[in-house]
């Protein structure tokens, strides 16, 4: 399996509300990310738009329905469609989530949590192997946000992910907001999480907004419907200072989509933080 070289760009998710902006002019991004399933279709406007955008920008394919954690394995027909799309678009990489979405009978279309057990790790690794072999390329797997943990858990999430990356050779998509959300919901340290991951496997970072907990609903929810909050920016800065290879950073907005200019402004903030972390890292390296 070919390795995925580091790519230190800054990008946005391509959303229908911004199609015209991306088709009409030069949007100052280094790449765009698209939801794979929206383009795993036979024809029509979505594919034409994606191909036009692809002519201007590198594209990352980000899936939500592969169901890496399904006990029943991954649907080969799904992988066939994804492979056709990847061959057509020639993406930077293909990613999906460490979660499960379906059983043999139903699909929840939600990113459901895996028990962090060694048995579940075996299943996830087998499925990542299946997907990578079918697609003929290494994948990026994203850490999830979650709202409950299982009594059966045997590993921390970072131990689970680190072992999965080691065994399958997959790369990581590090969602900083998801770490923050799950740390709030389950009471672990976000810094322990970062420190426990094989950070040299990270190729992309997601930044997003979330809905804070309330007294009535004591759970932080990963809604992607608002700006990135200060705590997540701070965690991003710490993550960037720990990374030894360039990684791509993306603002992930899925709901309450603002004008493109607002998202570009947030992306500029990410650029500034990354540059600061890079300068600081270089300074520390020199001092050492």
């Amino acid at each position: 399996m070919d390795s995925i070289p580091p790519f230190g760009g800054f990008g946005l998710g391509l959303r229908r509300q911004h199609y015209a902006d991306f088709l009409a002019g030069e949007v100052p991004v280094d790449f765009v990310e698209v939801i794979s399933e929206n383009y795993m279709v036979d024809g029509g406007k979505p594919l034409r738009v994606l191909e036009e955008v692809r002519a201007k920008h590198p594209v990352a394919l980000h899936g939500v329905s592969m169901s890496i954690g399904s006990a029943g394995g991954i649907d080969p027909a799904y992988l066939d469609r994804l492979k056709r799309l990847a061959e057509r678009i020639e993406p930077l990489w293909v990613s999906d989530h460490l979660c499960w979405t379906r059983t043999s009978a139903h699909n929840s279309h939600d990113l459901l949590p895996l028990p962090l057990t060694r048995d579940a790790l075996d299943v996830a690794c087998a499925n990542v192997d299946q997907a990578q072999n079918h697609l003929g390329r290494a994948m990026l797997i994203e850490n999830p946000s979650s709202y409950l943990t299982f009594p059966e858990d045997e590993l921390t999430e970072w131990e689970f992910i680190g072992e999965m990356a080691r065994r399958t050779g997959c790369y990581l998509l590090l969602d900083i907001n998801n770490i923050y959300v799950s740390a709030c919901n389950h009471g672990f340290s976000a810094d322990d999480y970062l420190a426990g991951l094989p950070l040299d496997s990270v190729r992309q970072i997601h930044l997003a907004g979330h809905t804070p907990a309330t007294k009535e609903r004591p759970v932080v929810i990963d809604t992607h419907d608002r700006d990135v909050c200060d705590d997540v920016w701070a965690l991003y800065a710490r993550a960037m200072s720990m990374l030894s290879v360039p990684v791509a950073t993306m603002i992930e907005r899925d709901d309450n989509i603002p004008p493109l200019a607002d998202l570009l402004h947030e992306l500029d903030e990410a650029r500034a933080i990354a540059a600061g972390a890079s300068d600081k890292g270089a300074g520390e390296s020199i001092a050492a």
Partner: peptide, 20 residues
Amino acid sequence: MNPSADLGGLQQAFMAQVLD
């Protein structure tokens, strides 16, 4: 013990919770 069988049972039960 078959890991996918155990996980499969858990996922069936979880999905039932989501749906109902």
